[in-house]
């Protein structure tokens, strides 16, 4: 009758995914000062993301964006009682462990910062704290889950105040899940094999250097001791779980372009479990009101009267047209 710990799928995983579940239906806000963190908490944010600059300013500044100053993160942790998250560069293992040692509650392996590893994302299974990762499509999501992500979010296009890419990624993800549900297990094995391909990139580069062709040299130890076959098998298991559950097997938020209460509600309507707001709050003219309004719209995303009421008199941040943006300015292209 009483359940065994081993019956609970990987205890550590349960704690990490459990943490993510506690944020469901909520809004995570980017903050750069203790004062902003206090505003976010008072507005009803479920967590804050401690940063040196919001994505719009990172985009404007250019150059290399790295993890925030530990002092800044500590100051924010001391100010609020809600969880504090921090962004780590894609593949930057050392930043990840450093941030974890500061006591942050969750990491965001984020394309908003400049990637540190051209081949691999962090092996998140080894970290004791949960990590959220961005994804543009089901393949990226499945690979991040395989690597140990406890939560997924759409990438969208951060710092633009333009919701179109977040919507694109959520639609593409949902469509991918719909397809997976209709596929046979043989087909799913093929999908797993295709999805495993990005773990062979560095190996292929070596093959090319050594023998002048891209035929992959060996299948052993492609990612933290795991062979290509093992990776494919694990990706298949995740896909099979998605097929059975009809959704990602963990919490899936929306991010990247949320600038108004209605934007937040739209992402919930499309199936997001919650919303990250980066620049949308503290780049708007009235941050406390915007923060409160986005929270209320997300919690009541199908109550249009409430959304209408909270939207009154609010102005969103200045937005950017993504179609006019050169490809190398698009943060979503980072990660694979």
């Amino acid at each position: 009758m009483s359940p065994n710990i081993t019956d609970l799928r990987l205890g550590e995983d349960l704690l990490k995914r459990g943490f993510a579940k506690m944020t469901k239906g909520g809004v995570v806000m980017d903050v750069t000062t203790a004062e902003q963190a206090r505003i976010a908490e008072a507005a009803g944010a479920v967590a804050v993301m401690a940063l040196e600059r919001v994505p719009a300013d990172i985009r404007a500044a250019g150059g290399v964006a790295r993890m925030a100053d530990p002092n800044k993160i500590k100051e924010i942790m001391e100010t609020v009682s809600i969880p504090v998250m921090a962004k780590v560069r894609i593949g930057h293992i050392s930043e990840a462990y450093t941030l974890a040692s500061l006591g942050v509650d969750m990491l965001d392996e984020s394309e908003v910062l400049t990637p540190a590893d051209p081949f691999f994302h962090i092996n998140k299974k080894e970290l004791k704290i949960p990590v959220v990762c961005g994804a543009r499509n089901l393949g990226e999501a499945v690979r991040r889950i395989f690597e140990g992500a406890a939560m997924i979010r759409t990438k969208g296009e951060a710092g633009t105040g333009n919701i179109v890419e977040a919507v694109r990624h959520m639609r593409v993800m949902n469509e991918g899940i719909k397809m997976v549900k209709s596929l046979t297990s043989d087909d799913l094995k093929k999908v797993a094999s295709t999805m495993s391909d990005s773990y062979r990139i560095v190996r292929r580069e070596i093959s090319s250097q050594f023998f002048g062709d891209q035929k992959v040299l060996g299948d052993d130890d492609l990612f933290y001791g795991k062979s290509g076959k093992q990776i494919e098998a694990e990706l298949y298991q995740i896909l099979d779980q998605i097929k059975k559950q009809g959704r990602l097997p963990l919490v899936n938020f929306a991010a990247g372009g949320v600038a108004t209460p209605a934007d937040g509600a739209l992402m919930m309507k499309l199936g997001a479990d919650g919303v990250f707001v980066g620049s949308g709050i503290f780049k708007s003219p009235d941050p406390p009101e915007m923060a409160k309004a986005v929270v209320e719209a997300v919690e009541n995303y199908e109550d249009y009267q409430i959304i209408g009421t909270v939207s009154q008199g609010l102005t969103g941040m200045n937005g950017l047209d993504i179609d006019q943006m050169p490809k190398d300015m698009r943060l979503q292209e980072r990660g694979w």
Binding site: S2, P3, G11, L15, F19, P83, G103, V104, K128, I129
Partner: peptide, 23 residues
């Protein structure tokens, strides 16, 4: 903080042993 979250086998009166998850 989250790093100190844990789970434990706990005896509950009138119910029996359960796995309690503390987050």
């Amino acid at each position: 903080r989250q790093a100190n979250s844990f789970y434990e086998n706990i005896k509950v009166n009138s119910i029996g042993n359960i796995i309690a998850i503390f987050i």
